[in-house]
Design a protein around this nucleic acid. Structure first.
Lengths: 142, 142
DNA sequence: TTGCGTGCAAAGGTTTTGCATGGCA
DNA sequence: TGCCATGCAAAACCTTTGCACGCAA
């Protein structure tokens, strides 16, 4: 077991602060760099990537791939957070959060019937949202 | 409406053949190029990308992003295929296919209670599989 | 002959790596 | 002082685009 001492730097401080402030959002590396620059705390992109990796390994941050093929998104994991599902609309791109009993049953079902421990935080359910389903009727053409 | 005439070439023939032969798998562009080269049918990567785009638009192929951040995977859509869920194990990387009534309920639930039309073919459920759950007990250390 | 298909090379985008420098402890 | 952190530049990837040439119809 290796003892890695972690230094406290203003860059890491700033990145972590920003992550915590936006813990209910999914933010990208560019997003972080951009906002910190505006706050006068310029941080290199490399540093952000590297520190995010550290935080992911420490389980303080989750990495998502919501926009397929596009850049990754990150989210700070707060202790008080409730488990919820991510729903992504293929039409309008909206990202919805959902927390209900019915969905919890999926998790139970997978675990008990299939011995599969679902990680709701990493999973993104793709489909078409309410608003777009409504629009669909009016405009069937693409 | 534009009339686009599609030519039948040996490259497209070969790509489609390979896709059909592996319709129950998720294959990458590199995978296709590699295998065709071994069969003596060398096809440029660009051609594969472009033809896959064509097939996706014709709804003959689906595009996935299973390995997060890695290259995309493609799958031929056969007519007789049943809807199933994709389960991806975060530990060992196994990709499981599942088709059961319990999971079908998810779809119904989302549609009726939340007005969300789930696309099971695009969705990948992340978690830990049976085998890895078993191993977990024996080895709690990382 | 027409115009779609091909594939090389180059560009575009995200992420990683090498390396010299900076800064915390 | 020791060693981790930083950030520039370059590399490594995957994917797309431009363009000249090939080839099916």
């Amino acid at each position: 077991m290796k003892k890695v001492v972690e230094y406290k730097t203003k860059q890491r401080e700033a990145i972590l602060q920003y992550l915590i402030q936006n813990k209910n959002k999914h933010i990208s590396v560019d997003c972080i760099v951009e906002h910190l620059k505006q706050q006068g705390e310029s941080v290199g992109k490399t540093t952000v990537y590297r520190y995010l990796d550290v935080l992911i390994n420490k389980n303080q941050v989750r990495k998502y791939f919501i926009e397929e093929g596009a850049s990754a998104c990150y989210q700070y994991i707060s202790e008080d957070e409730t488990e919820y599902y991510h729903l992504k609309c293929n039409k309008c791109g909206a990202l919805l959060h959902m927390d209900c009993e019915g969905l919890k049953n999926i998790q139970k079902h997978l675990l008990h019937e299939h011995n599969f421990e679902l990680d709701t935080s990493k999973t993104v359910l793709y489909g078409v949202c309410k608003e777009c389903l409504g629009r669909k009727e009016k405009c069937k053409e693409k």
